[in-house]
């Protein structure tokens, strides 16, 4: 499903600026949405569900064997298929150690 340009965009950003995709964020970690990649319909849907650029997301849990990820965004829990989560470019948030 992933188009070549998307993959390029993902790889390119991986090298440069510490960005990663939502699917690669660890359980319990937080991150900020940079951009949703992929088809027009998918990007629109993700945006409508509240994943607009700049939004903070917490990754709650991941399913086994490449299963979906569950996230918290704007006070709501959402499940995203792993292939959907791997189209969301995010910037990890470094949390302070003792909170």
């Amino acid at each position: 499903m992933a188009s070549r340009e998307d993959k390029k965009a993902l790889q390119g950003s991986n090298k440069n600026d510490g960005l990663t995709v939502l699917a690669d964020v660890a359980e319990g970690e937080k991150c900020i949405v940079v951009k949703a990649l992929g088809s027009f319909g998918l990007v629109r849907r993700l945006t409508e569900m509240g994943l607009t650029p700049g939004t903070e997301i917490k990754l709650l849990r991941k399913g086994i064997l490449g299963g979906p990820v569950e996230i918290e965004v704007r006070g709501v829990a959402l499940i995203l298929g792993r292939e959907v989560a791997s189209r969301v470019l995010v910037k990890p948030v470094k949390e302070e150690q003792n909170d």
Binding site: M1, L42, L46, M49, E70, L78, I79, L80, G81, V84
Partner: peptide, 10 residues
Amino acid sequence: GEPVGLIMEV
């Protein structure tokens, strides 16, 4: 039609 993956509220 265009398949959209799983995006679902819990």
